[in-house]
Simulated scan of single mutants.
Amino acid sequence: MTLTIWIDDWQIQCCGESFAPGDVVSWKLLEVDPEDYADVVGSERAREIDCREEHHGQGEGQDPTPVEVVSVTEVHCRYGVPPGAADTMNCPVPGTTVLVPVDEADGWAKARPDVRFAGYLVTARQVRGGDSDDVSAAELPRSPS
């Protein structure tokens, strides 16, 4: 069993470090509600997301989880003001997702026409004491709602 981890573009741009498949990294992982990502990655892919990586605030006092990166996919989508919205906040537009497998993640994806970089979907395996063990999302701290 593997984990699918969401990494926001701004989290890695602010203070994250580059990583690639095969790298072992230590991240603070918080369990998420996959539906929170349905507009960004599509409902089917959202159901695969187990947790998100957190650099700021949430997860304070939590030990980082060492994981081996298996694959990295850039996520791009269009943003716009939803029809009938009372405010002018841009939100992901469902159905506009573009997924791009990449060999390295540094937070700065190549620009793509009509969509904006939103983050990464990372497939990873937990690493404990040099041995690979499976981790379930039930073992991760919950993200505040």
Rank of each mutant, 00 (worst) to 15 (best):
E68W: 00
L99V: 05
A111V: 09
G119T: 06
D39M: 06
V67I: 15
P113C: 03
I5H: 08
E60S: 13
A137C: 06
D106W: 01
Y79K: 08
T65A: 12
D33A: 14
R52M: 13
A85V: 03
R112G: 03
V40I: 15
H56I: 11
C15S: 12
P66I: 06
T97E: 14
T65G: 02
E139I: 01
L30G: 10
T88G: 13
E104A: 11
V102N: 02
E74V: 06
P144I: 07
P141H: 15
C77D: 05
V32P: 05
G42C: 06
C91L: 14
T96L: 05
E54L: 04
P94L: 03
R116Y: 10
A138T: 13
D133A: 14
R125F: 07
E17F: 10
V115W: 07
W6F: 13
Q126K: 15
V67W: 05
R78P: 00
A111C: 01
S143M: 14
G61E: 11
P34V: 07
Y120D: 03
R128P: 00
H76Q: 01
A85K: 10
P66F: 06
P144W: 10
E104Q: 14
V102C: 09
A38N: 04
R78I: 00
Y79L: 10
G130C: 07
V40G: 08
V100R: 15
I12S: 02
T2M: 10
A38R: 12
V67N: 06
G95C: 08
S26E: 14
C77W: 00
G129W: 11
M89W: 12
G42P: 06
V40F: 12
D50N: 15
Y79P: 00
E104V: 12
S18L: 01
V70M: 09
W27D: 07
T2R: 12
C51M: 03
V40A: 15
A86K: 15
P144M: 09
E60W: 13
T4W: 12
A137T: 09
E35K: 09
E44H: 05
Q13K: 15
M1T: 09
V122C: 03
S18I: 00
V100Y: 05
E53A: 15
R125P: 00
L99Y: 07
S143K: 12
I5G: 05
A20L: 00
D36P: 02
P66S: 14
I7C: 10
F117P: 04
K28C: 13
E74T: 04
C91S: 10
E60F: 13
L3S: 01
E104I: 11
S71Q: 04
W6K: 03
S18H: 06
G130M: 07
D134M: 06
E74L: 08
A85E: 07
S26Y: 01
M1A: 15
C15V: 03
T73V: 15
G16W: 01
G42L: 08
D114K: 11
V75E: 04
